[in-house]
Design a protein around this nucleic acid. Sequence first.
DNA 1: TTGAAAGCGTTACCAA
DNA 2: TTGGTAACGCTTTCAA
Lengths: 349, 349
Amino acid sequence: MKEGKHISLKDLACELGISISTVSRALKDSPEISGEVRLRVKALAKEWNYRPNPFAMSLLKNTPRIIGILIPDIVTHFYSSIITGIDNIARQNGYSVIITSSYDSYKAEIQCIEDLVNVRVEGIIACLSQETTDYLHFTSLEDLNIPLVFFDRICLPDVFSSVIADNIESARLATLHLLNTGSKRVAFIGGANHIEIVRQRKHGYLQALREYRIPIDKDLVFCKYMGYSEGYEGACKLLSLSNPPDAILAMTDSIAFGAMKAIKEHRLRIPDDISLIGYTDEMHSNYVDPPLTAITHQTHKMGQTVCHLLLKQIKKREKPQQIIIPTYLAVRESSVKNNQRVPPTKNTI
Amino acid sequence: MKEGKHISLKDLACELGISISTVSRALKDSPEISGEVRLRVKALAKEWNYRPNPFAMSLLKNTPRIIGILIPDIVTHFYSSIITGIDNIARQNGYSVIITSSYDSYKAEIQCIEDLVNVRVEGIIACLSQETTDYLHFTSLEDLNIPLVFFDRICLPDVFSSVIADNIESARLATLHLLNTGSKRVAFIGGANHIEIVRQRKHGYLQALREYRIPIDKDLVFCKYMGYSEGYEGACKLLSLSNPPDAILAMTDSIAFGAMKAIKEHRLRIPDDISLIGYTDEMHSNYVDPPLTAITHQTHKMGQTVCHLLLKQIKKREKPQQIIIPTYLAVRESSVKNNQRVPPTKNTI
DNA sequence: TTGAAAGCGTTACCAA
DNA sequence: TTGGTAACGCTTTCAA
């Protein structure tokens, strides 16, 4: 039984007194093997619990069937949910998944890519760190012939395929929703300007203001970093303006929660004094006080879609394409001023 | 340059007109190599971007430097946070990590273990699915000589090492806290009884009641499944009792959030009508209304500790040990009845 | 129908 | 100081 060590074809061949090649063929139902041998081989393989050695296989074929994921972190629900979607599709297609986290550090991101290349992943799915402004570590993957697909925080759309949310439109609709439900001065809290999703969402926000013929007030836009503390900081700054906003569109869930804290500390009521909308898909939006209106991502679908896109690229390199996954606005209490109640959408939970 | 394909030692050797062994030695600073050759080899390796093929290595050494993780899911903050801890330590020690999710299904769990074995992980870190009552798929790992370490939801502590929280004590202290802050009838919502942490936490809960000389009322214990809906269901049932509780100790965060929903639907005030404590370490506990008092796990430390434990077992099989990671009670608003205000602990954020 | 041998990329041992 | 060779587990010619 060879306890401990793994069983190899050689072990089986020895025991049965036949050659390794015969065993190999018998196991894969090669037509040129006698039924009797096949049965004996299979029986023993089963009894001894034989499993092909994946490293020998990878060495031989140079296709380890592993895809690499690079994300900012795994604890943010948005990312872990997308990973779940990726993982499902990968498994269905016989791939394993290996996850690396940049923790939003440019330096760590480079190391992650290096690690993934070193384990010879067949392809990579990535979401940029907030710090990243240089893409050399990604473009150099082309020389190694490792396909790369981005999601959410993307770059170089002419070079790499990507999956994103309908950022412009979602921000536009969210802003319009605020303006339609009693808010007059809508502020925007985002992240650093070099990040594509920041620009897109701000774009949608500004477009809505334009549609409403509201002059743009630069003081109402706070863009620094996407994080809880910056949400808090941004809201504090906005609230201390001589002419403060009566609504905030926060670009991420953590920003929204930070802003919420600031608003409560200022003893303002949500939504009557300040309306608030977040970008999130977390069920926690439902539990906060008041329940948070939020642009909701179809994270699972996003994950599945990126993975499909990558698998396609692995099979056959194609020119880059971009897929947009629609979001929807889950209207809860934080956005509708009380003299403006509208019936909740069916997405409200 | 060999675009596309990976560079091998052979490629370097060919180009330099020396043998493969020499290249191999030069690259790893073998003392028995002339400085001149070493330099030339290293220069070319760098220029051509040579990376050792990990599969050849794994094949040779039979130590792929991969550890497998089996968890119920990745989106629950508790698990993703633990994974982060595991991952940090694993990387520090040159290991990669591969994650599989059982989605709390026994059948899927068996498949996950099978997958991990097939990729030849050197060891496995696992947290049981809620459905699991049979451990054959784990004990059979012993025959394969693959070390296994559990965390949180564990089994067979005499066979496998494990890392757990101080479940009995934490539940005891939480219950005492409720009784000390105005609650008279404390209920417990847990999961299925075959799960060790359920039994332990219930044990701590009952012990606290005994210390307070409060007779045990079976109606106040609801144990079915650890999930949001069951938290809701349990709370509904408890609240409809002829003699309902005035406090609930929920065994997980999702149970607590479900219970919170039920309580609000019953138009009861937290904590004045019903106090509520959850088991969680999420920052979201701070955002809910009211902020949730919760037993807080040191998830990162738990992850690091399991990983260390596993690495030790990989290096040298040792007899199983159990490590207990202390929790602390973060007292917030949901547990202290208003006529009983105590100063918040320093853990309150 | 079966077996022998080469090859995938690397290391380690033995010769030179 | 170097080179040749065997070995890791498997597949795939090529021969028998």
